[in-house]
Lab assay of single mutants.
Amino acid sequence: KHLIERYYHQLTEGCGNEACTNEFCASCPTFLRMDNNAAAIKALELYKINAKLCDPH
């Protein structure tokens, strides 16, 4: 559950690194913003595939 919350935060708030290159992070310049419901679904999907989590900045 904690990991899913981290994915959700990364998708909605980002890691804080303006030069982030993680396509699944709101801080990445090319990230496409999504609403909270879509972010919750995506967080579950990312958890299932063990996607990369950013280190908070």
Rank of each mutant, 00 (worst) to 15 (best):
Ala40Pro: 05
Ser27Lys: 09
Phe31His: 12
Ala38Gln: 07
Thr21His: 13
Leu44Thr: 15
Ala19Ile: 07
Ile41Ala: 13
Cys20Leu: 00
Ala40Thr: 15
Lys1Tyr: 03
Tyr8Glu: 11
Ala19Tyr: 07
Arg33Ser: 10
Lys48Met: 02
Ala38Val: 14
Arg6Gln: 14
Leu11Ser: 02
Gln10Lys: 02
Ile4Thr: 15
Gly14Leu: 00
His2Val: 10
Glu18Met: 13
Ala26Ser: 10
Ala38Ser: 07
Ile41Cys: 11
Ala39Arg: 09
Tyr47Leu: 14
Thr12Leu: 12
His2Gln: 14
Glu13Thr: 12
Tyr7Ile: 04
Leu53Ala: 07
Thr21Asp: 12
Phe31Trp: 04
Glu23Gln: 12
Cys20Glu: 00
Asp35Ser: 12
Leu11Ile: 05
Phe24Val: 11
Ala19Gly: 12
Thr21Glu: 14
Gly14Pro: 01
Leu53Cys: 06
Asn36Gly: 11
Ala39Glu: 02
Ala43Val: 04
Asn50His: 10
Thr21Tyr: 02
Asp35Leu: 08
Asn22Asp: 02
Asn22Tyr: 03
Pro56Tyr: 10
Cys25Arg: 00
Ala51Lys: 07
Lys48Asp: 13
Glu13Cys: 09
Tyr47Val: 15
Cys15Ala: 01
Ile4Met: 08
Leu53Val: 09
Asp55Lys: 15
Thr21Ser: 10
Leu44Glu: 15
Glu18Gln: 15
Ile4His: 04
Leu3Gln: 13
Cys54Arg: 07
Ser27His: 04
Asn17Val: 10
Arg33Met: 06
Ala51Asn: 05
Leu3Gly: 06
Ala40Met: 13
Leu46His: 14
Tyr8Lys: 14
His57Pro: 12
His57Ala: 12
Lys52Ser: 03
Arg6Ser: 11
His9Leu: 15
Leu3Ser: 13
Cys15Trp: 00
Thr30Ser: 13
Asp35Lys: 04
Thr30Tyr: 04
Ala51Phe: 09
Arg33Gln: 06
Thr21Gln: 10
Cys15Pro: 00
Arg6Pro: 13
Met34Tyr: 11
Lys1Ile: 09
Met34Trp: 05
Glu45Ala: 08
Phe31Asp: 02
Asn50Tyr: 12
His9Phe: 06
Glu5Val: 04
Asn17Trp: 13
Ala51Tyr: 04
Pro29Ser: 08
Glu23Lys: 09
Cys25Asn: 01
Leu53Gln: 14
His57Asp: 09
Leu11Ala: 05
Cys20Gln: 00
His57Ser: 03
Thr21Gly: 11
Ile41Leu: 08
Gly14Thr: 01
Leu44Arg: 15
Arg33Val: 12
